[in-house]
Simulated scan of single mutants.
Amino acid sequence: MYRYDCDLHCHTVRSDGNDTPQEFIDKAAECGMKVVAITDHDIEPPIYISVDNKKISTVDYAASKGIELVLGYEFSCDTYVDDVHILGYKLDWNNPLVKEEVEREKESKINAYRDLCKLLTENGISIDYEKDVLQYVDEDGSIKYRKKEDVQRKHIFEAIAKKGYTSTWQEAKLLVRDNPKLNIKRRKIDPFDAIKLIKDCGGTAVLAHPFLIDEIIKYPDGRSYTRDEYINRLIEHGLDGIEARYTYSKTSYKGNLSREEIENYVNEHYKGKVKFFTGGSDYHDDEKKGVKNPRYIGEAGISYEEFNKIREYFI
C-alpha cells in the first residue's frame, strides 16, 4: 500500500482513536513516516507523555524516533450541520480560549451522548450508556472504563454495530444522522467562531474532509446553502486551507465520487481561494477493534516536498 510521507489528520485514545500517543508515534516510525499530526476531537493535544516513568515532550519523543510531530485540535463545529470539522494547528495551547472551549465541549458531549443512548433504546436500539459505552473491552480482552468526558459519538456507533443493529460503525453513523428522531443536536462551536479562536491563538485553520458535508445544507430557520456556498463562507471568515486528500471510501461519505475525483475538484475549485491544501488519513487504529477496511497511517496525506512548502503553518 502506498503511503504519503506526511499525514496531518490522526487520532489517539485522547478522543476516539485506539492508540496512546506513544503507540501512535511508534507505529508512525515503523511505517517510515516523516511528519504526522495528532488532531484529537475537541481536546488540546498531548504536550507531554510519560516514557519509562519520565515526563517527556511529545514532540521530542517523536523526534527521537525520526518523526516531526505536528500538534493539532479537531473542532467539531455547527450544531445543525454534521461533519463540519475545522483542524487547528500551531495554536498556543495554554491560551485560556482553548481551555474554555475544551471544558464547554466536555459538558456538551456528556449531556448529548447520554441522551442519545436513551433515545436509541426508546426507539428499539438498546444501547446502555454505562454498560455499552462507558465500559468496553480492549484488544487484550480486558474490561476498561471510559470517563464520561472521553466519550465520542463514534463510540456509540461502534456499540450499535457490535450489538448487531448495523454491520459497521459507518452504517450506524448514517442510521443516526439521517433519522431526525435520533440525530440529537449537541451544542457545537460556530465554525466562524472556531476559525477566529484558532487565529486569536496564533494558529492555522484547515477544513477537514469537505465532502463529508452534505451537498445541500438546510437549517431549522429555513436558510439553505450548497456545500460550495458553505465552504466559501468559511473562506471569507479566514479559513487557511482545505484537506484535499482524504480516505472517503472508508468513512460515512454518501456520494459517488472517488477520492481522486474529490481531490481534483477541491484543488481546481478552491485554488487561489485558500493558501494551501493538505491531506490526512483520519487514522484511529480501528483495526484493534476488528473494524473491516480500517484506515492506515499515511494512507492519505501529502508528500514531504509539499509539506515543506507550507511548513510555517504547522511547525
Score class of each variant (00 low, 15 high):
residue 1 M to T: 12
residue 2 Y to V: 04
residue 4 Y to L: 02
residue 13 V to D: 01
residue 14 R to Y: 01
residue 17 G to N: 07
residue 23 E to L: 11
residue 26 D to I: 10
residue 26 D to C: 00
residue 34 K to W: 03
residue 35 V to T: 11
residue 35 V to S: 07
residue 42 D to E: 13
residue 50 S to T: 15
residue 51 V to L: 15
residue 58 T to R: 05
residue 61 Y to N: 03
residue 64 S to N: 13
residue 66 G to V: 11
residue 72 G to W: 09
residue 72 G to F: 14
residue 77 C to D: 14
residue 77 C to T: 13
residue 78 D to C: 15
residue 80 Y to D: 06
residue 81 V to A: 12
residue 86 I to W: 13
residue 88 G to W: 00
residue 89 Y to H: 04
residue 91 L to D: 02
residue 92 D to F: 07
residue 95 N to I: 12
residue 96 P to T: 08
residue 96 P to C: 10
residue 98 V to C: 13
residue 102 V to H: 07
residue 107 E to C: 03
residue 108 S to C: 05
residue 115 D to P: 12
residue 121 T to R: 14
residue 124 G to V: 11
residue 124 G to F: 14
residue 129 Y to K: 07
residue 130 E to F: 02
residue 134 L to N: 07
residue 146 R to F: 09
residue 148 K to F: 04
residue 149 E to V: 11
residue 154 K to H: 09
residue 157 F to P: 08
residue 160 I to D: 07
residue 166 T to F: 15
residue 174 L to S: 15
residue 184 I to V: 09
residue 187 R to L: 13
residue 192 F to I: 09
residue 197 L to C: 00
residue 198 I to E: 01
residue 209 H to G: 00
residue 216 I to E: 09
residue 218 K to A: 06
residue 221 D to S: 04
residue 224 S to K: 14
residue 226 T to K: 02
residue 229 E to D: 05
residue 232 N to C: 10
residue 237 H to R: 12
residue 243 E to Q: 11
residue 244 A to F: 11
residue 246 Y to T: 12
residue 254 K to A: 15
residue 256 N to W: 12
residue 258 S to R: 13
residue 261 E to F: 12
residue 261 E to D: 07
residue 261 E to M: 12
residue 271 K to G: 14
residue 276 F to G: 03
residue 277 F to P: 10
residue 281 S to E: 10
residue 282 D to T: 04
residue 288 K to F: 05
residue 295 R to D: 05
residue 297 I to E: 00
residue 300 A to P: 03
residue 300 A to G: 04
residue 301 G to V: 00
residue 304 Y to N: 01
residue 307 F to N: 04
residue 308 N to D: 05
residue 308 N to G: 02
residue 315 I to T: 13
